[in-house]
């Protein structure tokens, strides 16, 4: 569904500023219907990859295909729903205004749009604030509005940049439920997150990038089984470390291992 083909990106502001290489020849394929987790430490290049996918920025080399369409074509974004890293919307609009814009712009019929909007508002528990201006919203509320906006046209592929950030525990379970629901309906979900327990619970497959390079790519099933086995092999370490190591989940172990390579 989504193909990154040797995508590199270097940021350059000015003549005299240093170039920053944010992404180095990323090659990645995300299959239709899978939930794909995108991991990496801060500044690894996750958001960069997602922005490239959305055509906000252009790759220095390589190309990205979405369902076989070049990401540079506006057509490609018909299939996508996107949640930005730091959702910030027009201050003066109400969630309703914003969502109906999203629906209209993606070509949803007005009748369906109305249903869909009220459904999403209900689902994301925004009904009571649906007529308030967005400037009065808290970070978590904005995050919910952003989620609703990304889903308003019922897209085939949902791209979420840190969907859990700023959400309360209830919100997080809500989002988890949403993602699983999308998966059940055969949609593709591509999201980045720092919350590994969620990744472990939701994803079919994960990729870990570090300093712009792809360090790991594999099925979560395999990761879990591999590290659970390993733990049985490891002889008991000293006391302090054991108590620490015990709470590490398999994905966390993998993450630390990959980063320290």
């Amino acid at each position: 569904m989504i193909q990154f083909k040797k995508v590199s990106k270097t940021y350059k502001y000015n003549f005299w500023d240093k170039k920053i290489t944010a992404l180095k020849e990323l090659t990645l394929t995300i299959e239709k219907g899978e939930v794909f987790g995108f991991l990496g430490p801060n500044g690894a290049g996750k958001s960069t990859a997602i922005k490239l996918l959305m055509d906000f920025i252009r790759p220095s080399s390589g190309m990205i295909l979405i369902d076989g369409i070049d990401s540079k074509e506006p057509q490609a974004r018909r299939l996508l729903g996107y949640l930005p890293e730091n959702p910030y919307f027009y201050d003066q609009l109400t969630p309703k205004d914003l969502l109906s814009f999203g629906a209209k712009a993606s070509g949803v019929k007005p009748k369906d749009a109305k249903k869909r909007i009220s459904y999403l508002l209900k689902k994301l528990e925004l009904e009571h604030v649906s007529k308030r201006r967005l400037r009065q919203f808290s970070k978590g509320m904005l995050q919910r509005v952003g989620l609703a906006l990304s889903l308003v046209h019922d897209p085939q592929v949902v791209v979420l940049d840190e969907p859990m950030s700023g959400l309360d525990p209830l919100g997080r379970t809500l989002v988890s439920k949403l993602i699983l629901e999308l998966k059940e309906r055969g949609k593709t979900v591509f999201f980045s997150s720092h919350i590994l327990s969620d990744i472990e619970r939701l994803c079919d497959r994960i990729a870990i990038i570090h300093k712009g390079e792809l360090r790991f790519l594999g099925y979560i099933k395999n990761v879990i089984s591999k590290y659970n086995e390993q733990e049985q092999d490891i002889s008991l370490p000293p006391k302090e470390t054991t108590s620490y190591k015990r709470i590490l989940s398999p994905v966390e172990k993998l993450f630390i291992e990959v980063i320290n390579q």
Binding site: R77, P84, N86, Y88, F89, A105, S106
Partner: peptide
Amino acid sequence: SILSKDVDKKTIYIVLARPFSRAE
């Protein structure tokens, strides 16, 4: 100020994430 917000605070994302071409 609206235009600055679009560019500086990236409210433009909500538009460009839709099938808008830049000309549109």
